[in-house]
Design a protein around this nucleic acid. Sequence first.
DNA 1: CGTTGCGTTGAGTACCATCAACTGGGGTGG
DNA 2: CCACCCCAGTTGATGGTACTCAACGCAACG
Lengths: 255, 255
Amino acid sequence: MQIEPLQFAGAIASSVGKIKDLPCIECPVRKSNFCGGLLGEQLETTPLVDLKLKQVFRITPKRRNIYQAGTKSDDAIMICSGWAFRFVQLPDGRRQILSILLPGDLISPIGIFAERLKFSVQALTEVHHCAFNRVELQAKLPASSGTFITYIKDCAANAEQLHLLLADLGRRNAAERVSRFILRLMDRMTERGIGEADSFPFPLRQQHLADAVGLTTVHVSRVMAKLRSGGILDVAKDRLRVGNLAELKRVADIK
Amino acid sequence: MQIEPLQFAGAIASSVGKIKDLPCIECPVRKSNFCGGLLGEQLETTPLVDLKLKQVFRITPKRRNIYQAGTKSDDAIMICSGWAFRFVQLPDGRRQILSILLPGDLISPIGIFAERLKFSVQALTEVHHCAFNRVELQAKLPASSGTFITYIKDCAANAEQLHLLLADLGRRNAAERVSRFILRLMDRMTERGIGEADSFPFPLRQQHLADAVGLTTVHVSRVMAKLRSGGILDVAKDRLRVGNLAELKRVADIK
DNA sequence: CGTTGCGTTGAGTACCATCAACTGGGGTGG
DNA sequence: CCACCCCAGTTGATGGTACTCAACGCAACG
């Protein structure tokens, strides 16, 4: 359960103003997210907007917590690569997954302003992440209007996903929940250029699906079996293949 | 379904800088919320921080929508008095209530920055509300650190409530959902000085409870009957009376 | 080659939805 | 004043969805 920060593969634990060492130079998501506004969209050609911004890069192996609910932290953590998820844990050990985090996501937008969060974050795959200093970001944020706007959009998108999931859990059956969850995830991946039209990385176990949509693993297995037997989709070897998108949308009651 | 803006009881439809006419002078929630930062906490003694802030006061009768999902709006709307709720509607008419809005709540924190929202807001009782101009607030917000902090706290509290509700819908049974929902509502009321220790205003129908916690009205009725017969709580004439708080918390699996 | 993690399948069951009938209060209109 | 209706809530009967418990298959791994 303890977070054991490892050194970044590229051997940078902390970087202040050394462009050539920054992993961000090659970051594929920077163009479209929060970091773009913060560090500049084209790091290779344009210098960093503000080199004084402190960044600490770390790796968390899969199944380990990146952040533990209730812990005080001075960091705002960005997922650089790999997948993670936010979740709350019930006293009896059951958990509810709140959202899946993809590269380019902040662990929590409001985390920039709050020193403690009420949910935990766990790595689904090995995750490379970057810790900004919360207080530095707080100062920077209103100053840079571009960054601020992508930040607000993050918050809004975040809230919207929660609202949709809430409606699903409250009002939809198992097959609808699962297929809607998967479709939304596909949308988010496509937005970020992850995966192809009908094939996506999919590192979630059925346990994660179950915890996300409020079912048991046994029942998720049955739902997935049905989707698979209908040629609608198939998950194997951490990869999702969509055989019949139209039918998937129909099951999901979308459009 | 149409919003039909009515004149404010005090006959102020629009107010720019006329302190003595402002309903806000007597507002009981201003001290603790967003408006306090914006307008000053003690309007009677201290002049407004910024009289140029445009405010338009309106009334929406119960059961009518204050805001319709997807509509473009230049306003950020604050609930001055009365109760309302945010909800999303499914294509087949079922709905999921996202949260209950009390006096002092913004219809949506991110609504300050977004010209459209994906959920609707409906008045539960007659609601008096105040429309600020979104763009004006956007400019004002980062400038006033006090206001900004209460704003961020709003956002955080908001997200936290969603997370808790999500966990409830995903992982808890009917009795737990209902009692947790009620307890959280009680907490929020107490925070704002609404109601007494064991008695609170409660304008929700069982239909609203059902739509909030993802049950049918029939089943909510059964749960409420059980809570009532156990002397735990009773709802009558728009008022909630708690007979046994400890037991209510036990049922809700709190503490 | 045992162990471990993950998924699958079957049998039995609990919870909650659905359908339907009915009650009581409050408002309205004759 | 009463008849009527509507709304909100209650109650009973029935059934389906999803849960629980348990056993088993399979692949990966040391």
